Computed example of a mutant assay.
Amino acid sequence: MSRNQDRSLRGAVIAVAGAGGPAGRAALVRLAEAGATVVASDADPARLVEAVDAARYAHGGATVTGDTVDLLDLDATRDWAAKTEKEFGRIDGLVHLVGGWRGAPSFTETDLKDWDFLEKLLIRTVQHTSLAFCEALQHSDRGRYLLVSAVGASKPTAANAAYAAAKAAAEAWTMAMADQFHRAGGEQGTSSAAAILLVKALVHDAMRAERPNAKFAGFTDVKDLAEAVVGVWGKPAAEVNGNRLWLTEKS
Rank of each mutant, 00 (worst) to 15 (best):
V199T: 15
S149W: 04
D53V: 06
A178S: 12
V98L: 03
A62V: 04
T174M: 01
R3Y: 11
V98N: 01
H139G: 11
A153M: 03
A169Q: 11
A15H: 02
A158M: 13
G18P: 07
G89H: 06
V232I: 14
K250E: 14
V126H: 02
T157Q: 09
T84L: 11
P156Y: 00
G35E: 11
S106T: 12
T174F: 08
T63D: 13
V240L: 15
G93W: 02
G11V: 13
T77S: 13
N160L: 08
R211Q: 15
G89Q: 08
Y57A: 14
L48W: 04
G21R: 09
L198Q: 12
G93T: 09
A194I: 07
A170P: 09
A159C: 05
H204G: 04
A161E: 06
D42R: 03
S130W: 06
Q127M: 09
D141K: 14
L9M: 10
K200S: 15
R183S: 12
G24W: 00
A104Q: 00
A158D: 15
G103M: 03
G89I: 04
K167Q: 09
A214N: 11
A40G: 05
M175Y: 08
G242D: 08
A40T: 04
A162Y: 01
A159M: 13
A166F: 01
A51W: 00
A17N: 05
S8K: 08
A226N: 07
S2Y: 03
A54K: 04
G66K: 01
A46C: 03
L137W: 04
V49L: 14
W173Q: 12
L245E: 08
E135R: 13
T108R: 15
S8V: 06
L74F: 11
G99Q: 09
A43M: 14
N243S: 15
M175D: 13
A194S: 09
W80Q: 00
R142N: 14
G61F: 07
D111L: 10
L147D: 07
M1L: 09
P22A: 15
R211M: 13
T157S: 11
A176Q: 14
G143S: 01
E50P: 00
F107N: 09
Q5P: 08
R10I: 09
R25Y: 01
A26W: 04
A55I: 10
V199S: 12
D70Q: 07
E87H: 11
G100H: 00
A159W: 00
A150T: 10
V232E: 06
A217F: 08
A153Y: 02
G18H: 01
T68V: 15
T129M: 01
A43H: 02
Q180C: 04
L74E: 13
D111Q: 14
I123C: 05
A81I: 04
E171G: 06
N4C: 13
L197P: 06
D179E: 15
D92M: 03
A150Q: 13
T220S: 11
A170K: 01
A193H: 08
D67P: 00
P45K: 04
V29H: 04
V95Q: 05
L122T: 00
